[in-house]
Simulated assay, not measured.
Amino acid sequence: MKRVTGIGGVFFKANNPDQLCEWYRVHLGVPVEEWGGSAFSWKSPDNPDGVGTTVWSIFKPDTEYFGPGPSPFMINFRVDDLAALLAALRAEGCQVEDKMEDSEYGKFGWVTDPEGTRIELWQPPAGQ
Rank of each mutant, 00 (worst) to 15 (best):
S41C: 13
C21V: 07
F59H: 11
F12S: 06
F11T: 02
W56L: 10
T53H: 11
C94I: 09
L89I: 08
N47E: 08
S38C: 14
P31E: 08
S41W: 09
K107H: 09
N47W: 07
W56K: 03
T54D: 01
T117C: 12
A88E: 05
M1D: 10
R118N: 09
T117A: 12
Y105W: 14
V55R: 08
G6T: 01
A84W: 04
V26G: 09
W110Q: 04
I58M: 02
R118Y: 11
V26T: 14
R25M: 10
A126P: 13
T63C: 05
P48K: 03
F59R: 05
G69P: 03
P31A: 14
D98S: 15
F59V: 13
L121H: 01
V79M: 02
I119E: 00
E22I: 14
G8H: 00
G69Q: 07
T54W: 01
R118C: 07
P114N: 09
T117W: 06
P68D: 13
V51P: 10
G52Y: 00
L28H: 07
G9R: 00
Q128L: 13
E101M: 10
A84C: 12
I75W: 07
M1I: 09
I119P: 00
G93Y: 04
T5M: 05
L89S: 03
L86D: 00
M1W: 07
Q123W: 02
K60T: 12
A88T: 10
F66V: 06
G8M: 00
S38P: 05
V26D: 10
D49F: 10
A88M: 07
E104S: 15
K107L: 08
W56H: 05
E22K: 15
P70Y: 12
V10R: 01
T53A: 12
V10I: 12
V26L: 13
G9H: 01
K13N: 04
R78P: 03
Y65T: 14
D113H: 10
C21M: 09
